[in-house]
């Protein structure tokens, strides 16, 4: 089934290349939310994440011919585009303000869950900010992209062993940071 999906994505990109907007819509419906979430994990800013993903999809619409299905699957290729755009944006912009929607009421979620989620989100932001860009990318791909380690390594254009070792180093660094914090901060998750 996954192979079939990959094949379908490749055909859809070829159709996009030929100007088929229905194929583009299908790719958006299939992958849009996933890449929005990925970008949010990178930027911690919903508006910025949406800008990044929109720009990536505009690139897909205008330059779909650059995709080579023989070299990589669509998701691997598009992960690379989104991640590179996130890193570009991050280089250009300083994140001093709180993210959009930080304090927006969300009736679907209980206040205590929201509080814990916000707290965890901020803590994750702090911990991730201590990592290098490569370490951060490896962690986000591993935990939030739904890719296997092999696929994540392909996105980062590394071999699997190097990727896994990068991931272990990142986890060690994050763990050491967390160990320095007070235990009771994590009562919310216990």
């Amino acid at each position: 089934m996954p192979n079939r999906d990959k094949a379908d994505d490749t055909i859809l990109v070829a159709r996009v290349c030929a100007g088929d907007s229905d194929a583009f819509r299908l790719l958006v419906i299939r992958h849009g939310a996933r890449f929005r979430m990925l970008a949010m994990r990178f930027t911690f800013d919903q508006a910025l994440a949406e800008d990044v993903v929109q720009e990536a999809f505009i690139s897909l619409w205008l330059k779909a011919g650059k995709f080579d299905g023989a070299k990589a699957s669509f998701t691997t290729w598009f992960h690379r585009i989104v991640i590179n755009k996130c890193l570009d944006y991050k280089r250009k912009r300083q994140f001093s303000a709180l993210p959009d929607g930080y304090d927006r009421a969300d009736p679907a979620v209980g206040p205590e869950v929201k509080l814990a989620a916000d707290g965890a989100s901020n803590r994750l932001k702090t911990v991730l900010s201590a990592l290098s860009e490569r370490q951060k990318t490896a962690v986000i791909l591993s935990y939030y992209s739904g890719l296997s380690n092999q696929e994540a390594a392909e996105v980062m254009q590394m071999n699997i062993k190097a990727y896994e070792s990068l991931l272990v180093r990142s986890r060690a660094k994050m763990r050491k940071m967390l160990m320095a914090e007070k235990d009771d901060l994590f009562a919310a998750f216990a």
Partner: peptide, 11 residues
């Protein structure tokens, strides 16, 4: 726990 908490949040 931190990673899992964020994976399971509705967002």
């Amino acid at each position: 726990m931190l990673m899992m908490a964020l994976q399971s949040t509705p967002q």
